[in-house]
């Protein structure tokens, strides 16, 4: 089954082009969002309407499901590969994840309690307190469906294999040449994502998870969503930013809260021979990365790396080069850059 609309009428494109500021700012908070509020919302809804019930369930039930289970998660980051075995309990917007033996993050615990996240790190007896992620991962899928409306991506579905004994539907997003971008295996009766794979432009799998156990009727209590560790040091995203900046030897420049962007993590990364302070933000369901470093950058080369929805904006401030990368229009990135302090 393939749902790819022919190239969009240019007249419609003109209408979109006349309101460039609206692009990248619609940011509905719910996973389905105001489907009728604008061409993109309509495009999403039109594509969704033609997809089978499990896909609709996935969007409709996101943040409302109740289950426990175990899943294996693998991803690549900054040249390293991670593998975790997560034991998780999900109750709507509340969740608890424990990282089992054999995990890169063995012993850590994450509890999301609606808007508040606590993340315990046993090796340093530290609890990170921040804002819970909301619907970013499902928002990405929503964006893909929108993009399929203008032919930039292809969305197909098929019957998937049984996973943890449950029937699944495979939702595949691919580029126009058929190279997979993401694959999601959705449990047919609940809309739970049982397996997901994410690919980069080169076709390499850069992130994946798959459930190995699932219980749709778990015993859950309020205590599951509490972490009490006596003597643990409590830190927040600003503490982590300062620590990462110290490690990188960089005076940090960050997006202020007025920008609306929420800082999620900060890392000191060595790229080539340069120390780079990397900050990841969430804004309107999209992920943004702010890179800060000394020295110049080849903008032509950087621009060539802009693929699909990902755009960049570069400026200089405080003797540093800053590059903001995200799935937003360049003028929106430029606006955000004004909030860098």
């Amino acid at each position: 089954m393939e749902y790819q609309r022919p190239r969009i009428a240019l007249g419609l494109l003109m209408a979109v082009a006349l309101a460039p500021m609206a692009m990248g700012q619609h940011g509905p908070r719910g996973p389905q969002g105001p489907a009728g509020a604008g061409p993109k919302g309509r495009a999403f809804q039109e594509v969704l309407d033609r997809l089978p019930a499990p896909v609709k369930l996935m969007f409709a039930r996101f943040g409302k499901q109740r289950y426990s289970g175990q899943r294996v998660v693998e991803f690549r980051l900054d040249g390293e590969r991670y593998k975790n075995i997560e034991n998780l309990i999900v109750d709507g917007l509340r969740s608890r994840i424990e990282f089992a033996a054999g995990s890169s993050w063995y012993g850590q615990v994450i509890v999301d309690n609606r808007n508040r996240r606590t993340h315990f790190f046993p090796d340093r007896n530290e609890i990170f307190v921040g804002v819970s992620p909301r619907d970013e991962s499902i928002m990405r899928l929503r964006q893909f469906l929108q993009s399929s409306a203008n032919g930039r991506l292809k969305v197909t579905t098929d019957n998937g294999p049984d996973i943890v004994g449950r029937k699944t539907t495979l939702l595949q997003v691919a580029d126009p040449n058929g190279n997979p971008v993401q694959r999601v295996w959705i449990e047919n009766t609940t809309g739970i994502q049982l397996k997901r794979e994410i690919f980069d432009r080169a076709g390499s799998k850069i992130g994946a998870f798959e459930f190995t156990r699932l219980n749709l009727d778990p015993k859950i209590s309020d205590e599951d969503f509490v972490i009490n560790r006596r003597g643990a040091k409590v830190v927040d995203s600003q503490d982590r930013l300062r620590a990462a900046a110290r490690e990188a030897g960089i005076t940090p420049i960050a997006l202020t809260q007025d920008s609306g962007a929420l800082l999620q993590n900060s890392r000191a990364v060595k790229i080539g021979d340069r120390n780079v302070l990397t900050q990841t933000y969430i804004l309107e369901g999209r992920r943004l990365t702010l890179f800060q470093f000394k020295g110049n950058i080849d903008m032509k080369r950087l621009a060539r790396q802009e693929k699909g929805l990902i755009k960049t904006y570069r400026w200089e401030q405080g003797g540093y080069s800053l590059v903001l990368v995200g799935e937003m229009m360049p003028d929106r990135l430029a606006q955000l850059a004004k909030f860098a302090k």
């Binding site: 294996v72 996973i163 994946a208 190995t212």
Partner: peptide, 10 residues
């Protein structure tokens, strides 16, 4: 139970 096959690192 299905077996998870790691295929990362291409």
């Amino acid at each position: 139970m299905s077996q998870y096959l790691g295929v990362m690192g291409l």
